[in-house]
């Protein structure tokens, strides 16, 4: 039931290669998705009706559609419109969209949690809206958002396993491949699970550490 020592050493290079791809997809999805989330949050909060509608549309699809559906749609659906993407790009686009949609709500709520008096003080000092956002609202709002954003990042890392369905050679695909050639599915998937945990658990500990520090800020 458990992988043997020999199996582990035979599979490890392959599994680590898969893990590396999972981490790359996670990194790119977050690097694109979180700034997108910020833009969408600002769009939803914008005064312009027009910007609001577009942002809400993107957010609601990104949140409403399961990540698996987005992946399938972009990888298998878009080629029918003539746009063909590799599985790596398709994975990043789908997960970045998903990240953007979810984090926009986290960021929006955090921005709105900044005390009303902060905005008034910025206005009374004559700061324009951009400076108000840059110097007053974002630094305070993002601090509130940080633990939730990190928590979401762990979910996205785990969500990269869905890319198995679009033939991306990430961690689960590699484990599945090993299983299909050796018929040792359970040990192979177990090994993959351990690798996921090896990243997720320390990351979760980091999140709770950051959470505590963010709380301390109020009493600094």
């Amino acid at each position: 039931m458990f992988p043997t020592q020999d199996e582990i050493s035979a599979w490890l290079p392959d599994l680590l290669g898969g893990l590396s791809i999972s981490l790359q997809v996670t990194a790119f999805s977050l690097l694109i998705g979180i700034p997108l989330g910020l833009l969408l949050a600002l769009g939803v909060l914008a005064r312009s009706r027009w910007l609001q509608v577009i942002s809400l549309f993107l957010v609601e699809i990104g949140r409403g559609a399961p990540a698996l559906v987005l992946l399938q749609f972009i990888y298998f659906g878009l080629p029918t419109t003539g746009l063909t993407l590799g599985s790596f790009s398709a994975a990043i686009i789908a997960l970045a969209w998903n990240t953007g949609a979810y984090t926009s709500e986290i960021i929006r709520a955090s921005l709105q949690s900044v005390a009303h008096g902060q905005r008034e003080a910025a206005e009374a000092l004559g700061l324009n809206r951009f400076d108000e956002l840059r110097y007053v609202l974002l630094p305070q709002g993002l601090r509130v958002a940080l633990p939730a954003l990190l928590g979401f990042s762990i979910l996205i890392f785990q969500g990269t396993s869905l890319c198995f369905t679009i033939a991306l050679p990430e961690l689960v695909s590699r484990a599945y491949e090993i299983g299909s050639t050796t018929f040792r599915y359970f040990p192979a998937l177990l090994a993959a699970g351990v690798l996921y945990a090896a990243i997720s658990i320390p990351a979760a500990l980091l999140v709770s550490h950051v959470e505590k520090r963010a709380g301390l800020y109020a009493q600094r």
Binding site: Q118, A121, L125, R143
Partner: peptide
């Protein structure tokens, strides 16, 4: 902005930027 440049305001709750 012209108005606010000429007029300063002090609030009951100070509203300093805590960060």
């Amino acid at each position: 902005s012209g108005l606010r440049r000429r007029v300063g305001m002090v609030f009951q709750s100070f509203n300093l930027f805590p960060h």
